[in-house]
Simulated assay, not measured.
Amino acid sequence: MSALVLTLRNAPAQRVDAGALNPTALAGLSVADIAALTLQIGKRTVRVDEVFTLEGDDTADLVFRGDCGKFERIGAGMKSGRVTVEGNAGAYVGQGMLGGTIAISGNAGAFCATGMKGGRIEVAGDVAEFAGGAIPGEMKGMAGGLLLVGGNAGERLGDRMRRGQILVSGNAGDYCGARMIAGTIAVAGTVGAYPGYLMKRGTLIVNSLPTQMLPGMVDCGPHRLGFLSLLYASWKGLPGAFGALDASACTVRRYMGDMGVVGRGELLVRA
Score class of each variant (00 low, 15 high):
R65G: 03
R65N: 07
R65Q: 10
R65E: 06
G66L: 05
G66E: 02
D67E: 07
D67M: 06
D67V: 04
D67K: 06
C68L: 10
C68W: 00
C68N: 12
G69Y: 02
G69E: 08
G69K: 07
G69M: 03
K70L: 01
K70N: 05
K70H: 03
K70F: 00
K70W: 00
F71T: 01
F71Q: 01
F71C: 07
F71S: 02
E72I: 03
E72T: 08
E72V: 04
E72S: 13
R73F: 12
R73C: 07
R73M: 05
R73Q: 13
I74M: 06
I74V: 10
I74P: 02
G75Y: 01
A76G: 15
A76L: 06
A76M: 10
G77C: 11
G77K: 14
G77N: 10
M78A: 08
K79L: 07
K79C: 09
K79G: 08
S80M: 12
S80I: 07
S80P: 12
S80C: 10
S80K: 11
G81R: 12
G81Q: 10
G81W: 05
G81I: 11
G81E: 07
G81D: 09
R82I: 11
R82M: 11
R82D: 09
R82P: 09
R82S: 13
V83I: 15
T84P: 01
T84Y: 00
T84Q: 03
T84R: 02
V85G: 00
V85W: 00
V85H: 00
E86D: 14
E86H: 04
E86N: 11
E86I: 05
E86F: 02
E86V: 15
G87P: 12
G87D: 11
G87L: 03
G87T: 03
G87M: 09
N88M: 02
N88T: 04
N88I: 01
A89V: 08
A89S: 14
A89P: 13
A89M: 05
A89D: 05
G90S: 14
G90D: 05
A91L: 08
A91N: 14
Y92Q: 06
Y92R: 07
Y92C: 09
Y92K: 04
Y92M: 15
Y92G: 02
V93N: 01
V93P: 02
V93A: 01
G94Y: 02
G94C: 06
G94I: 04
Q95R: 08
Q95T: 15
Q95S: 13
Q95W: 04
Q95G: 12
Q95L: 09
Q95N: 11
G96P: 14
G96D: 09
G96E: 06
G96Y: 09
G96C: 12
G96N: 09
M97L: 11
M97T: 13
M97C: 14
M97Q: 15
L98A: 15
L98R: 14
L98D: 13
L98H: 13
L98W: 07
L98I: 15
L98K: 14
G99S: 13
G99Y: 05
G99W: 06
G99V: 11
G100L: 14
G100W: 05
G100N: 13
G100Y: 04
G100R: 04
T101Q: 15
T101L: 10
T101W: 02
T101S: 13
